[in-house]
Amino acid sequence: MASVYSEKVMDHFANPRNVGEIKDADGVGEVGNAVCGDIMKMYIKVKDGKIEDVKFKTFGCGSAIATSSMATELIKGKPIEEALQLTNKAVVEALDGLPAHKLHCSVLAEQAIKAALADYYTRQGIDPKPLIGDIPETCEGCCSH
């Protein structure tokens, strides 16, 4: 049957990878807000400079869930430096595209990972700002609030 989303998006939505939380996470990041209709929360476990494990929880539409799932897949097992380089564009490409009005979901996924990494650096006593920059506190431009 026809869908507004690509097969890959539907696959990641129907069977999201890495859903859940990590109790003893090394970094946790949360972005978005309930008013706008999407919140992403990422948990990372770091070992030997690599993302050993990653889990997410998402409140949001189908593409928000699918981009969270794909983003976790793209950074799992990767060195932190590589995870930091993940762009929303890469997430969108890996999902074979998103409808134009859903692109902000992919931005949110990128930000959620960066927020988790920023938290990781902070816990390590490293100022994350020079490495990551500012992460907007709300989903700027995603809605009228």
């Binding site: 539907m10 209709g37 409140f59 949001g60 189908g62 928000a64 869930i65």
Partner: peptide, 24 residues
Amino acid sequence: GIEGESLLLYLDMKGICASSGSAC
């Protein structure tokens, strides 16, 4: 605690056509 579009998509997978007032 949930968002309408994802609710509709999962219902669609179960063969139920519905609608929502969510922004998405």
